[in-house]
Design a protein around this nucleic acid. Structure first.
Lengths: 181, 181
DNA sequence: GTAGTCATGTAAGACGTTACATGATTCT
DNA sequence: AGAATCATGTAACGTCTTACATGACTAC
């Protein structure tokens, strides 16, 4: 049920349509699950039923009409309640880590290729996240407190990928060392 | 469909029952998703249908009979194919990170409590993972290569939580600094 | 007597993904 | 001509979680 709070969070900053929400969630590394998710429309209907959001239909000349959702007072209260509820540890689903756990089934060349591929992917993603963070900083920020938290979230994500690259160096070293023996 | 390969991987080390698999997966930080998952029994039936595993029913005097599953040659081949297929980036679902992104809605005291709670949880988990890694190292290992990969996986997990704690220190500092201003 | 381990499984529901439908407009 | 953007939504499927059923045995 965290997509619910992701939506409430975004709406608490500004009113948005389902389409906008979908894009915002897809672009955010922290929220991204699930931006490719059409549950958003369903969840909006649900939130409307719970009276946590309202919407206004905006007619447009050149484009299809859109429903612009806004958070209600109850919605804001529900969001704040959730914010102070006990946080859970992050869940990580790491495909590559499972492969490494069974890497003894691979030949040295295959393992090398696997590491190269993953390092490449992590590197690309790291650059993307750094760029995203840089752009956010450049934006004219309204609230200093909000900007600080935004920056800290970006730094968490960047440091995750940096940590991954550091670990990959270690993997390379130790795998190389064992092959020599 | 990664639970499929988690099962094949574990069975490739030694034959196990569904119950054993469930426990192994639940205990492993890398595989843990989903240890509380009864899909295991369903997936085993499926894998049996695909002829990637076989099973033998073992009758026990004091306990219910169990089905001990073993991997087939096709199963091993499927596992190896998956191991060399392109790895995906890890997926992180970080509850706490989302809360920080909206922490500007909280009062200083509430934020402090939230950080304390999360730090406590991360700290406990880090100790658990270090202990797990230590115990694994102490085990009489058969294969040096396998032991190396097991250690590297453990180090990845430990370094994730260490990184999280480092980041939390930074969060504390910067939040404290802003409050003084 | 309450809870936990051993062991397999079902059922219901929540959550997530992919593909598709509609239909005008704009870009290549 | 084909694809992308804007915009809302449905349908089908797949994955994941929670709770429950069964039943003997062990430990507090």
């Amino acid at each position: 049920m965290s997509i619910k709070f992701a939506i409430l969070g975004l709406l608490c900053r500004e009113p948005l349509s389902g389409y906008d929400l979908k894009k915002r969630i897809a672009e955010s590394a922290a929220l991204y699950w699930s931006g490719n998710n059409n549950q958003i429309y369903k969840t909006l209907v649900q939130l409307h039923g719970e009276e946590l959001v309202t919407y206004e239909v905006m007619h447009q000349d050149e484009f299809p009409a859109k429903k612009v959702y806004a958070i209600t007072a109850e919605g804001t209260a529900a969001l704040k309640d959730w914010l102070v509820s006990p946080p859970e540890l992050p869940e990580i689903r790491d495909d590559f880590l499972i492969r490494i756990a069974w890497a003894d089934l691979l030949e040295a060349g295959q393992l090398g290729d696997l590491i190269d591929q993953y390092e490449e992917e992590v590197g690309v993603r790291l650059l993307m996240e750094r760029e995203k963070a840089r752009r956010k900083l450049a934006e004219g920020q309204k609230d200093a407190r909000q900007a600080l938290f935004e920056r800290l979230v970006g730094e968490n994500i960047v440091s995750f990928f940096e940590n991954e690259l550091k670990w990959l160096q270690k993997v390379r070293q130790e795998v190389g060392r064992q092959e020599v023996e």
